[in-house]
């Protein structure tokens, strides 16, 4: 087990290395630097700026310098947000995004699994049809449509919730409700369909027939024999779901004006703030990779057939 974890951690290093290297060169070779779109700067000023950010050095040297800084946890200065380093910017915004993302993931898993199980147990009855229609809505309606429509209904017409913003303290919980539900909706829908399908498949399996032939009550059959096996696909979906939630938070944070990484990320992309873009990508990839790692381990705990070799 320990061996497995160590091996998995070591295998993350090349992946992260490739991601960082690729994005570094991709961005450096891209046409149009961060300062090219501004009004014509005097030659001398431009030279000074380039020098300040070490952009006048040969590419190889820049790359080594950047790698060295990253290992020290320094993601460089932001080109646009003067006087702030990328590390600072990410540190300020990340907690908000993580809070929002984890609440959304939690909601998606909790409701998705619940609805999926009910739907499978009531297959082809009205509960199933209702749940699956809701799931198709969740899969079909884009986040940036759900978000504004929720705002329109619950904030502007009914005045139940704040339209947007991020307040700390008790009022913050109200402000969190809409963004969290919006963000969780597509993943709720997908998880509901996934768990319905896998519960149905397990229900048809031989070992469930055995359990019923033993005279167990249907509720015991479901709780004890069906759920564990049926949850495995859901667990392996958590990795991609988390990636999706990170992406989705870009839109949700924009719509609901949440001061999170996603909003900064869009800003940096629109402003061509290259150091900030790279910092975001590195942090996002790290989170994703870590999440997949956790999912693997949880999966191993659930499925005794997996041996950590």
């Amino acid at each position: 087990m320990t061996k497995f974890i160590i091996r998995r951690v070591l295998s993350l290093i090349p992946t992260m290395f490739i991601i960082v290297t690729l994005s570094f060169f991709l961005i450096r070779f891209a046409p149009g630097g961060p300062f090219s779109s501004e009004k014509k700067l005097p030659e001398q000023v431009l030279q000074n700026i380039l020098k300040k950010y070490h952009m006048d050095e040969p590419l190889g040297k820049q790359y080594l310098r950047y790698m060295g800084d990253i290992l020290k946890g320094d993601l460089g200065p932001s080109y646009r947000y003067k006087d702030q380093t990328v590390t600072e910017l990410i540190k300020q915004t990340m907690p908000n995004s993580i809070l929002l993302g984890s609440i959304a993931l939690g909601l998606a898993v909790f409701f998705g699994v619940g609805v999926g199980i009910i739907s499978a147990l009531k297959q082809n009855r009205w509960q199933d049809y209702m749940a699956m229609s809701l799931a198709v809505v969740g899969i079909s309606v884009p986040l940036f449509v759900i978000g504004p429509i929720l705002q329109l209904v619950f904030a502007m017409k009914l005045h139940l919730l704040p339209t947007s913003g991020w307040i700390t303290g008790r009022a913050g919980i109200l402000a969190l409700i809409m963004p969290a539900f919006t963000l969780s909706f597509p993943y709720f829908a997908y998880i509901a369909r996934l768990s319905r399908g896998s519960v149905l498949e397990v229900l048809r399996s031989d070992y469930i027939r055995t359990a019923r032939a033993k005279g167990l009550k249907e509720s015991v059959v479901v709780a004890k024999h069906v759920l564990k096996g049926a949850m495995l696909p859901v667990v392996s979906y958590l990795g991609p779901a988390f990636a999706g939630i990170i992406t989705g938070s870009v839109v949700v944070e924009t719509v609901f004006v949440v001061p999170g990484v996603g909003k900064i990320f869009v800003q940096s992309a629109l402003n061509r703030d290259y150091t900030l873009i790279m910092g975001d990508i590195i942090v996002y990839s790290l989170i994703l990779v870590a999440m997949n790692f956790v999912v693997d381990i949880v999966y191993g705990f659930l499925d005794p057939r997996i041996a950590y070799k």
């Binding site: 992946t15 490739i18 991601i19 994005s23 991709l26 961005i27 891209a30 046409p31 149009g32 779109s37 990636a243 990170i246 992406t247 870009v250 990320f265 869009v266 940096s268 992309a269 629109l270 061509r272 873009i277 975001d280 990508i281 996002y284 990839s285 994703l288 990779v289 997949n292």
Partner: peptide, 21 residues
Amino acid sequence: DILYGLPYMLVVIILMSLVPE
């Protein structure tokens, strides 16, 4: 597998931001 690990839409966003106006 490596490409799968990337947050795909975010990469597209970066690609879009690299395109000259």
